[in-house]
Simulated assay, not measured.
Amino acid sequence: MDISNRMALEVPLISARYARRFIEFMERRGVKRSALLNDTNITDAMLDDPDASISMQEITSVLKKADWLMNDERAAFQFGQQLDLPSHGLLGFAVLGQNNPRQLISMIVQYLRVGLPLMDMELNSTGPTFNIRLLDTWGLGELNPCITKMYMGSIHRVSAEVCGHFDIRFAFSARRDANSWQSLATDCEFHFDAPCNQITMTLKGQPSQKDNVGLQFLLARTRKLAGQQNGQADETLMQVREMIMSQPGRPCTTGNIARRLDISTRTLRQHLASAGTSFRELRNEIRENFATLYLRDTNVPLESIAEKLGFSDQASFTKAYRSWTGKTPGDARKQSQKSH
Rank of each mutant, 00 (worst) to 15 (best):
N256H: 14
G205V: 07
V213A: 13
V109N: 02
L215F: 11
L36V: 02
L282D: 07
W138I: 12
L118V: 08
Q98D: 06
G214Y: 10
S55R: 09
A76I: 06
G164K: 03
L37V: 03
V62G: 04
M243A: 06
T202V: 07
G97F: 03
T277K: 03
M26G: 00
A16Q: 02
E161C: 03
N179Y: 02
F22M: 11
T254C: 07
S323D: 11
L63W: 15
V213L: 15
T267D: 01
C163H: 03
L218A: 06
A75H: 00
S173H: 14
T60H: 10
A273D: 13
K334W: 08
L293E: 09
L268T: 00
P50G: 07
F217L: 14
S55K: 11
M243P: 02
L261K: 04
T40F: 05
K224N: 04
G231R: 06
K308F: 10
I168H: 00
S316E: 12
R287E: 08
A194K: 12
S264T: 07
N100Q: 05
F93N: 11
D177F: 06
Q198P: 02
A52G: 14
R269V: 01
S246F: 01
G276P: 08
D120C: 04
D49C: 04
L237E: 00
I305A: 05
R133G: 09
Y18A: 05
A315K: 00
Q209M: 11
E122C: 11
A194E: 14
V162E: 08
D136Y: 03
T253A: 07
E142I: 10
T328S: 15
A315E: 15
D262M: 10
S323E: 13
S159P: 05
T222C: 12
S208G: 04
A233E: 04
I286E: 01
Q270S: 10
K65L: 13
D48S: 15
A178L: 06
R221W: 07
Q110S: 13
A185N: 12
G330Y: 08
W68D: 14
I132D: 05
A66M: 10
R113W: 10
V162I: 15
C163S: 07
A76L: 01
R283V: 08
A315R: 01
R21E: 12
A220N: 09
V240G: 00
G249C: 13
L140S: 08
M70Q: 05
V62T: 07
K334V: 14
T298N: 02
R223T: 09
H271K: 05
D331F: 12
S154E: 05
G205T: 13
Q182Y: 00
K334T: 15
D187N: 13
P101M: 05
